[in-house]
Design a binder for these strands. Structure first.
Length: 584
RNA sequence: CGGGGUGUAGCUCAGCCAGGCUAGAGCGCGUGGUUUGGGACCACGAGGUCGGCGGUUCAAAUCCGCCCACCCCGACCA
């Protein structure tokens, strides 16, 4: 064994030791920056992990980057364990590939587009299904090559209408996307199961509690999709969760049992004067009836076409369901101008006798007799409207929004609604991309078939925000030990005391020799500053060395998660820390 | 895109309504000194196109107009 003394002295150019806080880049903030609203955003800024450049565009500073890389490493390990193979795809895409898939309009304005010097159209990739399908089709010909799981961890760009919440919703973001390729639906099921487990592992290892919910697949497409949701008030999504069984869904997608209404024989239609009465509540009060006895009309513009949406008065419209029912990209409530152009009278509209307007009715409407609806003229309503007899819809399907207290579609117990952050999303794409992109393989019988695809994403920056949301206290971040930038925060009190600095230097070396990473606060700061920074930065263990502890031949060890500290003899400190690091 | 809010020093903000000296405070930063177990103290100091452009005025951080940026709610969104 070579003695340490025989090693060449450190060359001068490596003299900056960045694990000493005096040299470490990035500073802590005492005050909360005004722009930060959510807890994670505040802590990420205060601890000096990230810095904002523009709306939804962030720099990662050394400490934040270190953690992000650990997050990526966990993801990488779980993807590899599931049989995934990592590759790297371009961020810059020729616009033609997006035109080929026909998906550009679906993304609308959220795709960043640009031109090269020859005026060719390019896209800053918002996601990579098209690109991976292209890679696939050039390399895979046979069913023997399947199943196949390919993934990438890289930057993507989406010009979000509204970035928000620090890292929760950004415009330039790093995302892990894994794409699965299978011969058939059963294969896809299996790949999807693998990913469900892999995702569960990732979030468990990151210390973020998640629930799996049924989701809407939006612009990514496909038949089924699930989201991993972290229930948090800082989230921008709403999760509908059954209070009794395991039903859980994104509010965009959630179903519920609609209350049955008494069946009665249809009565004759009868017009009633309702001056100034427009809202359902007013109508009910005026006529002395309940909301479920009314028919509510809501007007949307769906890709520029007027749509009349009819739903019973005791329910609200779920716009995502309407959008899906109409296969529309853009859906918005009609404004006054659009209403007038379509010849509709807000507050008194009725589907009866309506022409040239697409009518969508909720599926509870046909079984709800004798409803009160508008008369298609001001200040009047009609009683006893009956679906089938008086009017029909172009589409009858579920378009109702699940609300707090509604009955679970599975067990009938009350549903709860909670704010949530979408941590991961799994899509069963099927063959929609492979057909458009010509990604086929030859099956056992030599027949070319479109490959069955799945896509599975995790936003790494958002996950970082979720980790901080899930693990912090009043004082700052509490890193799960597997993600902490350093294992130990070494705090020297009284830097002017040689016994303190000597002990710290020895411990600093000794711990590193033992494979423990150390952030050493060697600054000439007061104890309060150092302790507060240690709490804010959130390393799992704090090791304090001061004249007071050295008088007892000891140093002080404290877990970030605990209030109390313990004195440990200096010579036992390294062993003790090592032991503590092994226990979660 | 609709609604609301905010732009003054690295950060948090006051000053603006009621125009008027070299534009302020706290924190942070630099120098020197005193301190040292939960964001210490003293002294001195550096640091500002008052978001931008235009207008009104003898005079604009302050009043008016246009624009831009950022934040929040909604729409939209993986």
């Amino acid at each position: 064994m070579i003695s340490l003394l025989t090693l060449t002295p450190r060359p001068a150019y490596s003299a900056i030791d960045v694990m000493r806080l005096s040299h470490h880049f990035g500073r802590t903030l005492r005050q909360v920056p005004a722009e930060a609203d959510t807890v994670s955003h505040q802590l990420l800024l205060r601890a000096g992990l990230v810095q904002q450049l523009a709306a939804g565009i962030y720099s990662y500073l050394p400490l934040g980057w270190k953690v992000l890389r650990k997050v990526e490493q966990i993801i990488r390990e779980e993807m590899d364990a599931a049989g995934g193979q990592e590759l790297m795809l371009p961020a810059l895409h020729p616009i033609e590939i997006w035109e080929a898939s026909g998906r550009l309009p679906l993304f609308g304005g959220t795709v960043f587009t640009l031109s090269d010097r020859r005026d060719r159209g390019l896209v800053l990739g918002p996601t990579h299904e098209e690109i991976i399908a292209d890679v696939f089709k050039r390399h895979v010909q046979s069913y023997r090559d399947l199943p196949l799981l390919l993934y990438q961890i890289q930057v993507k760009f989406r010009d979000e209408a509204r970035p928000r919440g620090g890292l929760i919703r950004v415009r330039e973001f790093t995302m892990k996307d894994l794409y699965s390729f299978d011969v058939d639906a059963e294969g896809l099921d299996e790949s999807c199961r693998k990913m469900l487990q892999a995702y569960k592992n990732v979030f468990d290892r990151c210390g973020v509690p998640t629930v799996v919910v049924e989701a809407d697949s939006g612009a990514i497409g496909g038949k089924d999709s699930w989201e991993f949701m972290f229930l948090s008030d800082s989230g921008e999504d709403q999760a509908v969760i059954c209070s009794a069984c395991d039903y859980a869904a994104n509010a965009e997608r959630a179903d519920f049992r609609k209350p049955d209404v008494p069946q009665e024989t249809p009565k004759p239609v009868d017009e009633v004067s309702t001056p100034g009465i427009k809202a359902i509540d007013d109508l009910c009060a005026f006529l002395g009836i309940a909301p479920w006895q009314t028919l509510k009309a809501v007007f949307y513009s769906a890709d520029g076409q007027p749509a009349f949406v009819a739903i019973r008065g005791d329910m609200e419209v779920n716009e995502t369901k309407v959008r899906n029912a109409l296969s529309a990209v853009d859906l918005h409530l009609m404004d006054d101008v659009e209403l007038e152009q379509a010849g509709l009278v807000a507050g008194y509209a009725s589907p009866v006798g309506l022409k040239n307007v697409k009518v969508v009715a909720d599926d509870a409407v046909p079984s709800s007799p004798n409803l009160v609806g508008g008369a298609n003229k001001p200040d009047a309503h009609q009683r006893n409207l009956n679906y089938g007899r008086d009017w029909t819809a172009d589409i009858v399907t579920d378009i109702a929004l699940a609300r707090e207290g509604d009955a679970c579609p599975r067990c009938g117990s009350p549903l709860t609604i909670q704010r949530a952050m979408e941590m991961g999303h799994l899509f069963k794409l099927g063959t929609i991309y492979s057909e458009k992109m010509g990604a086929t393989f030859l099956d056992r019988d030599g027949v070319a078939k479109p490959v069955v695809m799945g896509s599975y994403g995790i936003g790494t920056g958002r996950l970082l925000a979720g980790i901080v949301e899930a693990s912090h206290d009043e004082q700052g971040i509490i890193w799960p030990s597997q993600l902490a930038p350093y294992d130990v925060h070494l705090v020297a009190l009284s830097m002017d005391r040689p016994d303190v600095t000597d002990a710290c230097e020895r411990l600093y070396e000794e711990l590193q020799q033992a494979g423990i990473s150390v952030l050493y606060d060697d600054r000439d700061e007061s104890p309060g500053v150092k302790f507060n920074d240690a709490d804010l930065l959130g390393m799992p263990l704090r090791l304090t060395v001061s004249p007071r502890t050295l008088d007892k031949g000891s140093v002080e060890v404290k877990r970030r998660t605990e209030k109390e500290s313990t004195l440990v003899p200096v010579e036992e400190a390294a062993a003790r820390l090592q032991e503590l690091l092994k226990q979660p």
